[in-house]
């Protein structure tokens, strides 16, 4: 744990958000440190996606602040937040269905940030966007020889679309990737192949925030877990700490599932 040594890279400070009369988030604060993989879990409707939206600027928090590297990014427009290197995936995948897979990556590579940084593995220089796009896709698991990168996005299976969402973030050479349920809707084998990918990204020094329902896989990769319930932060700690927490058991987990997961973890 490196809480005491490092400055937090992303900080959420007492953020609240209400839609009409519904309070989606209530005074949620947490810190993310460089190199972390922070998991955020919670039942449906507990405000997980709202956190993502508040950080990335798709929704403006009603109160509270969000800091990235000490800089206040509350309520900034999404493209400006992304320009800083805070990227996200969408729970409901949003690829560009009318384009082939590799051209999906041309769009993030066209952004000012990609021009500055050269994209993932770009080394500060941006070459031909379409070739870089194919390289990125190959590295993230699109087999080049099978022509999958060249297929129309609308014909791709879910597993590839989830990877494409990640690739879109990577093309920006991100500092943080906030994954909104990248494992959901995938088969066990597809998840099994995603886990090493996440670990590799972590090794490369990309900070990752994961919002997940698949606890088993999440606990393999996450080094800290935060639990949300009804828009409030319930607890935060290492996976084992969280599992042991009585409050969490009561509020969120079905007891059987907890046992099962604990054995696994």
């Amino acid at each position: 744990m490196n809480q005491d040594m490092a400055e937090p890279i992303l900080q959420m400070d007492k953020t609240s958000k209400s839609f009409g009369g519904v309070q989606a988030l209530r005074d949620v604060s947490f810190d993310v440190f460089p190199g972390d993989v922070l998991g955020i879990i919670g039942p449906n409707g507990s405000g997980k996606t709202t956190i993502v939206n508040c950080i990335t600027g798709f929704v403006k928090p009603t109160s509270g602040r969000v800091y990235f590297k000490g800089e206040d990014i509350t309520g900034r427009q999404p493209h400006k937040v992304a320009d800083l290197g805070v990227t996200r995936t969408f729970q409901i995948m949003r690829p560009y269905y009318s384009l082939p897979a590799y051209k999906n990556l041309v769009i993030p590579l066209f952004s000012p940030r990609a021009k500055r940084t050269g994209g993932w593995r770009g080394g500060g220089r941006l070459g031909n966007r379409q070739t870089i796009a194919i390289d990125i896709l190959e590295e993230i698991g699109f087999e080049r020889d099978s022509y999958i990168p060249f297929k129309k996005t609308s014909t791709l299976p879910t597993g590839y679309l989830k990877r494409l969402e990640l690739a879109r973030c990577l093309a920006l050479k991100p500092e943080i990737i906030i994954c909104d349920e990248v494992f959901s809707g995938l088969s066990m084998s597809e998840i099994a192949s995603m886990v090493p990918l996440i670990q590799r990204l972590q090794d490369e020094g990309i900070t990752i925030v994961m919002i997940e329902h698949r606890l088993r896989e999440l606990f393999q990769v996450a080094n800290r877990v935060m639990v949300l319930n009804f828009g409030q932060k319930l607890t935060e700690g290492t996976p084992t700490e969280v599992m042991a927490d009585e409050k969490v058991k009561e509020a969120y987990f079905g007891s059987e599932e907890v046992e099962e997961v604990m054995i696994y973890a």
Partner: peptide, 15 residues
């Protein structure tokens, strides 16, 4: 074309 397909994703790409 991307804006037409999916503007949110374009925003999230920093454009």
């Amino acid at each position: 074309t991307a804006v037409m397909d999916n503007d949110q994703a374009v925003k999230a790409s920093g454009i």
